[in-house]
């Protein structure tokens, strides 16, 4: 039985001024899938994500979230989002991890209503789930990049979204922390049936944890399964000169 589509894009094109970023790309992401979006710098990965967030409108074609055109989509609480600069946001902001995570429960708390203990408990559980339970009273300024990113992940997860969109979730994070963040995302996917779409430069991580990849290249989109992703990675290593650093694009 086919999985219900959480995201679908039909013949989507986008251009910034005269520059065509991608042309007539189509793809679908089903419920519970973990899809990685890969591609070179400037290929349009973050643009695609911003389109899914309703911040950019496609030049042509249609993007749908949960079957509804993204331009008419209003149920943003069904979606969690982790920004590319997530770990850098609020470094100097005088707020604790608990305050930041609780803030994302806005829909549950309501406009002009006060946060209650049950909301704070929920935020604490989200922090515990990402391994940051002991840091609830700390400000982001006193944490490492990886820890801050986990707090931001807790914030994205606290509202129990059905879809999680991540823009470079491991940028500015060391390899060990990257691996544990991807492992956690993969676990959450299978545990809660969460659909995860992660833009990443890290092909190695994508091949290890994502079920497939949407590869943006020269304005078009190629879908790669897990085996093809592994092949792509092997190909890059084989063609690297001794001592050359392989760009993880």
């Amino acid at each position: 039985m086919p999985m219900p589509e959480v995201i679908s894009a039909d013949n989507v094109s986008f251009q910034y001024g005269d520059e065509l970023v991608f042309s007539k790309i189509s793809f679908a992401v089903g419920s519970g899938e973990f899809a990685a979006v890969i591609g070179a710098n400037g290929a349009g990965k973050s643009t695609l994500l911003r389109m899914l967030l309703g911040e950019l409108a496609p030049s042509s074609g249609a993007v749908r979230l949960f079957g509804r055109d993204v331009r008419d989509f209003r149920q943003w609480s069904r979606l969690g989002y982790l920004a590319q600069d997530g770990a850098a946001v609020g470094v100097n902001f005088p707020a604790t991890a608990e305050e930041i995570v609780t803030a994302n429960l806005f829909c549950e708390i309501g406009l002009m209503r006060f946060t209650k203990k049950r909301h704070r408990d929920k935020a604490l559980r989200a922090l515990e789930r990402v391994g940051m339970g002991g840091y609830s009273n700390r400000t982001l300024g006193g944490m490492s990049g990886g820890q801050r990113q986990r707090v931001m992940l807790a914030r994205a997860l606290v509202g129990e979204p059905e879809l999680l969109l991540l823009d470079e979730p491991t940028s500015g994070v060391d390899e060990g922390a990257s691996d544990s963040i991807f492992a956690l995302l993969s676990e959450l996917g299978s545990e809660r049936g969460l659909t995860v779409v992660a833009v990443t430069h890290d092909v190695a991580m994508a091949s290890r944890y994502a079920s497939r990849a949407l590869c943006l290249e020269y304005g078009s989109l190629v879908e790669l399964g897990r085996e093809q992703l592994a092949e792509e990675l092997t190909h890059r290593h084989r063609h690297a000169r001794p001592g050359e650093i392989i760009p993880e694009d």
Binding site: L79, Y81, A83, G90, N104, L105
Partner: peptide, 12 residues
């Protein structure tokens, strides 16, 4: 004040 974009996505 903390994050205008995230606030919008949270429904604020």
């Amino acid at each position: 004040a903390f994050d205008e974009r995230a606030a919008r996505l949270a429904g604020v």
